[in-house]
Design a protein around this nucleic acid. Sequence first.
DNA 1: GCTAGACTATGACGATCGTTATAGCCAGAG
DNA 2: CTCTGGCTATAACGATCGTCATAGTCTAGC
Lengths: 194, 194
Amino acid sequence: MAKSSTPSRERIVAGAADMISRRGLSATSIREMAKHAKAPLGSTYHYFPEGKQQLATEAVRYSGEWVARSLRKELEAGPAAGLAAFLALWRRIVFESDFHAGCPVLAVAIEEPPADEVPPALAAAADVFEQWENLLADSLRAHGARAEQAAQVATLIVAAVEGTVALCRAKRSTEPLDRTAAQLQYLIAATIKN
Amino acid sequence: MAKSSTPSRERIVAGAADMISRRGLSATSIREMAKHAKAPLGSTYHYFPEGKQQLATEAVRYSGEWVARSLRKELEAGPAAGLAAFLALWRRIVFESDFHAGCPVLAVAIEEPPADEVPPALAAAADVFEQWENLLADSLRAHGARAEQAAQVATLIVAAVEGTVALCRAKRSTEPLDRTAAQLQYLIAATIKN
DNA sequence: GCTAGACTATGACGATCGTTATAGCCAGAG
DNA sequence: CTCTGGCTATAACGATCGTCATAGTCTAGC
């Protein structure tokens, strides 16, 4: 078998991202990630010789890129459409997992690093947030927003959506997403108008 | 010794809240919480016979009430002052911990619950978020905001601040807080004006 | 067909987890 | 003084953790 329908390595990364988004990094064991991807434990150390940190780093980048792709595509129709897609994407993840899944990037971002050291997974999380913000900010600027305003609004959107997903999980309801959605839509409309 | 300067029980809860805000719930062991509070391991099971879940629940409520107190007090000077205090409080926690600490309520909120069951700590997190939102929404309404708008803005503020704290930790910078602060201030000004 | 190298199978290592049990201490009430 | 009850001390339980080592299987290219 040269290549199975989805290669083992990618299945492991995608599965790891899903599990991390639910339980957090430290509560997700390598054994469970392997089992979830129907891969043997030995394979995880074959594909990711640096161990858990490497796997976490790749999982963060994987979901980061996945979201960025969607964002990039929908932003072609303008910032408001991009925001709507961004919100819909997270609503779907939260709702379809029965409020069990969230954002793996956030989950990794709030793990405490060892003193005076920055683990690669945490650095990857920072990069992913930055990328999402830049996509939104560029689109806002392209539609007439002032540079500083665009940056501020982009950061607010990313932060608010991440926080709202957490609120939804705690309350087992998508209502927080509805509320922030309404306000963020006003905000975008006001931002690209001046 | 009838009562030490700070009672053991409260020291354990406060310490647990701090540790959970840094490492997350599942990465924080009861042994470490006891050691951090200079209390014996046996004492934690004496004060919290339901074990880790109970300790986590009380830690969430403890920090929830602590933030709510500050919020309640500063909101007396109006929504804008309340928001400023809310932001300053989190900025202080993030900065003074060298970007290691965050919000323990968020940390508990994103832990996956067992299927069809809601652990008390998760329910407590939902309550705390609700309480913060209500404090902000009431203040907004008292200053002329429409009821629905007030609720939406309050949810957005709580979610955005929680998310921004996570962004700051990942990026090891307080700049995200500056950006969201600016936008949330505009938003409050616009909300209580109509 | 054979060999090299990618992948898997299996088991073990020390460490730490949540939790419990049991015995001991030690202040304050009687 | 004795005794009771809140708190501590200590050790242990099985389970699971991240990681590593070793031997085995299988396939692609010669």
